[in-house]
Amino acid sequence: MKYVANRVGFLLLSIWAAATINFMLPRMMPGNPADALIARYHGALSATALHAIELQFGITHEALWVQYLVYLNHLLHGNFGVSLTYYPATVMTVIRNSLPWTLGLAGLSTLISVLLGLALGIYSAWNRNRRLANILPTATTFTAAIPYFWLAMLLVYFLGYILGWFPIDHAYTSTLVPGLNPPFIMSVLGHGILPACTIVISSLGGWLMSMRNNMVQVLGEDYILFAEAKGVPDREVMLWYAARNAILPSATSFAMSIGFVVGGTLLTEIVFSYPGVGYQLFTAIENSDYPLMQGLFFMIALAVLLANFAVEMLYGRLDPRVRKGGVSQ
């Protein structure tokens, strides 16, 4: 119970921190970026919209703490202001339209990548005197260092343009009407293959390496030797004695990994013009659409923090030592 309360507390604290970073950044920057923005949109936007931006970015004569309270209040009500790129659509509308694409793409690719990475890590650690098993970590060291956007460009060029096997951009054929019908679903899957491959290939190495390292450590433990000595079948030692215990420490590096995967997904989306939050974030940056940018950043951070929270709760369930605070000390 104390563990849960602790994690919930940290979740709330980190959400507050992300919101505060979001609030402080434009105010800390030299030559207030919002000034230029407002000058640019003067006349193009209604007076109320301009006033809202002034409030959002601190071009008012209100005290900082008043601005901060107003900002937090808006955030609590899901009010991120109006997007300048998609004016008069609100930032929330843009987020609502783009978030499902990213969650689907990143979620599915991460799942594939984790399962594949753990399986290959187990294989590679168990057979660590065989040649293929030893090439594997070196090969994935290279794939993990490939920039996501460059891999995306290669896939688009060779499999999309040259061979024409896959569509090169967007999430579905634009002539189709979105809905739960077979042609649309097939189109979404077809468009998702290359972006998903990009994310899986680039993120696989991390899971493989951490699983392999943990597994190698576990294999050095006495109880493995004992299990082998008393004649437990190899497969059972590998999966139920070694792998099961080696998976747990992998969860601790999830925090960092998920951040990288999300960053990679954003870059991948940009190359494929995939209509998720990453592509929208890039659009917002290119158009200096600060309200949209702020809203998207907060939502991305929120999604990552929630994913982390979920994994930590799961971790606490799997490993009683964590709940009792024995391991983390």
Binding site: L13, S14, M29, P33, G259, G263, M293, A301, V304, N308
Partner: peptide
């Protein structure tokens, strides 16, 4: 250390992009 843990979970690349956009 709490601050470190927060910085660990706040996704780095989006933060980097946002800062990059402000300082342009």
């Amino acid at each position: 250390s709490t601050f470190t843990n927060i910085m660990l979970v706040v996704p780095g690349l989006p933060l980097l992009l946002v800062i990059g956009a402000y300082i342009h």
